[in-house]
Amino acid sequence: MVHIVKRMRKLRELLWIRVGPGAIIFPKEVSKIRMEFSANIEGGHRGARKFWREMLPRIKYRNPALPIEISRHKDKLGPSILEVYTTVKAAAAAATPASTTPTPSAEAGAGATQDTLSASPEAPAHTIDLRMAQESEILAQLIARTGATVLKATAEEKEELAEIAEFKERSEKDRVEVREKLEAKRREEEMLRLARGEMVAAT
């Protein structure tokens, strides 16, 4: 089993899933989120993957009942989109008429309906194009479109985060120090070994 100290440290760092970018709560009408992007970052899918790895856990933690689906394909020219489904689609569409057919993601959305199966029969309320987008941009767009509330870290949590950061910095310094010491020792041993070896060869 992994050592207890290691595990507990990791659990302490669990804080990252509670606070930080992505700690948002969606309004009630958001019923599902679906992402689709390539398994490879080539072709502008990097931001999408980063978003999934770093921010989706926070979103899922804050919205545990919200189904989040991800499908990854092999085609680098394939769709790279994030779709938000809502229960009251008509109301949402009326509220944000511009976002249902955003100009940049029009062709991406069309591609999605063509070659991939949309999971639910109704069309998504919002579609965000993820191609060439940074993960922070994706999050900003998502918040703007759905009107999600962003949770701020409390003072204690900030303090704890700072503590963890400081700890990490210190451990990096220690690591360098120890490595230097170890390397010096190895060098010495090596020199000694060579000296002895040479002496044997000389006699």
Partner: peptide, 11 residues
């Protein structure tokens, strides 16, 4: 389970 489901998102 709440945490684990968050970590396993999209899998």
């Amino acid at each position: 389970m709440h945490y684990i489901r968050a970590f396993e998102v999209g899998r």
